[in-house]
Nucleic acid binder design. Sequence first.
DNA 1: AGTTGTTGTTAATACGTATGCATGACAGCA
DNA 2: TGCTGTCATGCATACGTATTAACAACAACT
Lengths: 341, 341
Amino acid sequence: MHSPPPERPPMSITSHDVARLAGVSQPTVSRALRGDHRVSEATRARVREAAEALGYVPSEAGRSLSTRSTRRIGVVVTDLTNPFYPHLIGPLHDELERRGYRMMLLTERSETALETERLLDRSIDGVVLTTALIGSTLPAELTRRGLPFVFLNRETGNDKADAAVVDNEAGGRLVAEELVRLGHTDVGLIGGPADTTTGRDRELGFRDGLSEAGVGLPRRGVRRGPFDYGTGYQGLLDLMADSSRPTAVFCGNDVIAIGAMNAARRLGLTVPGDLTVIGFDDLPMAAWETFDLTTVRHDLDGMAQAAAGLLVERLSGAASDAPRRVTFTPALVPRGTHAPR
Amino acid sequence: MHSPPPERPPMSITSHDVARLAGVSQPTVSRALRGDHRVSEATRARVREAAEALGYVPSEAGRSLSTRSTRRIGVVVTDLTNPFYPHLIGPLHDELERRGYRMMLLTERSETALETERLLDRSIDGVVLTTALIGSTLPAELTRRGLPFVFLNRETGNDKADAAVVDNEAGGRLVAEELVRLGHTDVGLIGGPADTTTGRDRELGFRDGLSEAGVGLPRRGVRRGPFDYGTGYQGLLDLMADSSRPTAVFCGNDVIAIGAMNAARRLGLTVPGDLTVIGFDDLPMAAWETFDLTTVRHDLDGMAQAAAGLLVERLSGAASDAPRRVTFTPALVPRGTHAPR
DNA sequence: AGTTGTTGTTAATACGTATGCATGACAGCA
DNA sequence: TGCTGTCATGCATACGTATTAACAACAACT
């Protein structure tokens, strides 16, 4: 069974009520409150007063229906409890707000048709994809339906679309160069998923950097998994259970690195004495004394702002047709978890 | 040169298009797709087929306008980067989803009139308040406007409304009793804001528990601040700069406790050797080896689910008028950060 | 054969706002 | 005084869906 029909939701004030009170027509109310210059000052004042008195708030649905735009942006994320995303979404929210848009968070676990419908019911004007997977068909679908979108942080690899991303390869290479400089020859990698550009490209750059210096990355020195704590924790346990223990490990992001450090602690390994650990992202957490994590920093705020800018410009028709990419350059932040071999 | 200003947003399929293709009227499409039993099987099939073929997705605005309901819930939060909230919002999102509602995240810094409007433009059917402040006028305003809401985690103290909360006083008392049992007589508190029920009541219970055992909590042994890392970090530095250094500190939540532990590390204090630290919430982070934090656990998921349930029931009119409270009982989780004096 | 249902469908309309078009008032000008 | 133009406002309508009421078609009773 279910709920009985919710009789009549409580009355609410419409522009007609305001019009009646102010002694004008409904369209005049609309124009007056939206600052249309064709309304006389006297009338505008009267309308404002009436609206104020009644506590009038324009209906979002009515406006959307009429203007065919919602001033709302959908942001697709999978896992909010991963600290990375709040730090990405915070600045994104603020920047969208600043540009007159509201953020609508869409926490999608999978790309079911049902989930996709939520993007297509015209309740949002555009989409920010932060957790795109390589090979995802969602972007193509959005393009087909004419719903503008922008990649933030991750891409799909194939789709040509607006994007704000870090140069992940460069970041991976930075870490490789540092490890080489420190004299490490037995290195490990606990990377992100292979079907994400962030996972793939960081690994790619890391491998390139190593091989240029003649350092190998054996297959059994590599573990991969979701960008979360568990991946780092289990990944390090696995790596260390193997006969060829690495002296340094590059982790796909800070959260993985923190998982790895905790596992190291459990194994009684000191960092960086017994093991060098390097992360990626430079979340605030990385700077905590407990971790003091050496990592790769990039401009998370700037990236989020750029994505918001790209999308909003496209929505306003100000953008050219060609997709635009904004790439941020990462930098190594040396802290306390790396040491010479 | 390129696309003209997108005067007409790209065509989109409406129920009229589906009707035309299926050779029926628009209302029939509406009924057929929504499973109205008065539509014949044959017609329903034809309509479904047509809808499928055209890729029809009903317009959310149209539906909202007509039904006067959006199946959307606004969730008010201040700071997403505080790990506590994602852990609260995750299960909340899932439970709302399960009950057929979508979550709309409203990240509000302040209670300006402008912000409040977003709650009142009829784009949401109800509100979950997770960061209510004691003395806030927002709940009264919502009541006045007939917008149902529920308190989750925090309350305002005065308003009588549905709420899902922990017994914060009991939690604080648990900690006091444990510290007393361990023989601590010089105790400190780094609490949450005094204008939050979570901050106030945990302190209240803690004080009660202490005084019942004849242990005092001197004014200079108390620091308060936002429920964040910085509060814990600076709070502990301050406490330890004072002449009367406590041997144990109760922190308003886990995030504060982690800040405090990091400060302890900076000061060269060992935990729990030199200092006992106890938190509140039992976030996953608390169990990390690095912290191994003794804390107070409560059922975060259950609380979020309860809040969703209370609100949805009220929306469906199934709830009685009387406000209902669901209170969760906390329990001490002994880990590695507490020790006898 | 006439009445009464029953079933499946359409027509008309409501929801709240925004906008193109028409209109009325009034000033400026000759 | 008539003509033109500007300004402020109202009228009619569109947006997309859901719902009420009306209506056919047809079966089932008297």
